[in-house]
C-alpha cells in the first residue's frame, strides 16, 4: 500500500494508506482522546470521545476506526468537536457512580482526567436509575466495582482477543448493558486467573487489584 495525503488541523500530513485517523494523528504528535481503544487491537469504536470532523461528512467520524483517504480534511479540535466531546464525557459521568472524588487513585482514572482536560464539572444531567451494582470482591485477583464501569469494553476485548480467556462478555441491552461473566455471576477464581490484563486496561476504577490482606 502506498501513502496518502491528509490534512489534520491545518497540517499537511503524509501517511500510510490504510491507517486510521487516530494513527495518522498520533504519529504526527496530534493528540486525540480515547477511552475504548487498545493500540494494536481491532478498534471498538464504542466510547465516541475520539470523534473528529471530516469535511464532506454529515456526521463526525470515530478517529480510532475510520481509515484515512486521499485528500481528507480533518478537524480534531474544532469548537464543534470539543462541544460534542464535552457532552459525551458529561454523559459518561452522569450514570457512573462511585467515590472517585475521594479515591486516592482518581488521577489514574482516564475518565476523571478527560473530564478535567475538557473542563467538564459535575454533570447537570440525570438518569432515572444510576447504575449501581454491589462491589464484587470474591475473586482473589480482580475486584469488580461495576458501578464505575463506563462500558468501554476494553476488559472484554483484552480478555478475549489478547489473553484468549473469553470469560467476559457484554450482557443485556441499551442502558442496562453490563459486562458479565458466566451466567451474570461473580468472577470465579477458576475462570479468571491472575493475568491482571483487564485491570491494566480499565480506564476507571471498575476493575482493580484487591487490597492484599
Amino acid at each position: 500500500m502506498g501513502n496518502v495525503n491528509v490534512n489534520i488541523d491545518g497540517r499537511k500530513i503524509r501517511v500510510r494508506e490504510g491507517s486510521t485517523i487516530l494513527e495518522a494523528a498520533t504519529a504526527n504528535g496530534i493528540t486525540i482522546p480515547t477511552l475504548c481503544h487498545i493500540k494494536g487491537q481491532v478498534p471498538s469504536g464504542v466510547c465516541r470521545v475520539c470523534v473528529v470532523e471530516v469535511e464532506g461528512s454529515k456526521t463526525m467520524m470515530g478517529a480510532c476506526h475510520t481509515p484515512v483517504a486521499e485528500g481528507m480534511v480533518i478537524h480534531s479540535k474544532s469548537p464543534k468537536v470539543i462541544a460534542v466531546r464535552k457532552v459525551i464525557v458529561e454523559l459518561l459521568l452522569t450514570a457512573h457512580t462511585g467515590d472517585c472524588v475521594n479515591d486516592s487513585n482518581a488521577e489514574n482514572c482516564a475518565l476523571h482526567n478527560l473530564a478535567s482536560d475538557y473542563e467538564v464539572g459535575a454533570p447537570h444531567f440525570n438518569v432515572r436509575n444510576p447504575r449501581f451494582y454491589p462491589a464484587e470482591e470474591s475473586n482473589p485477583y480482580v475486584k469488580r466495582d461495576m458501578s464505575k464501569c463506563i462500558l468501554c469494553r476494553k476488559c472484554v476485548k483484552v480478555c478475549g482477543e489478547v489473553v484468549r480467556k473469553d470469560v467476559l462478555s457484554i450482557g443485556y441491552r441499551g442502558f442496562k448493558s453490563k459486562v458479565v461473566s458466566g451466567f451474570d455471576e461473580a468472577l470465579t477464581a477458576e475462570a479468571c486467573r491472575d493475568c491482571l490484563k483487564c485491570i491494566e486496561h480499565c480506564p476507571t476504577g471498575a476493575l482493580s487489584a484487591p487490597a492484599r490482606v
Partner: peptide, 8 residues
Amino acid sequence: LPLNEVYG
C-alpha cells in the same frame, strides 16, 4: 463458546 457469550 463460553457461557458468558451465550448469556450475552
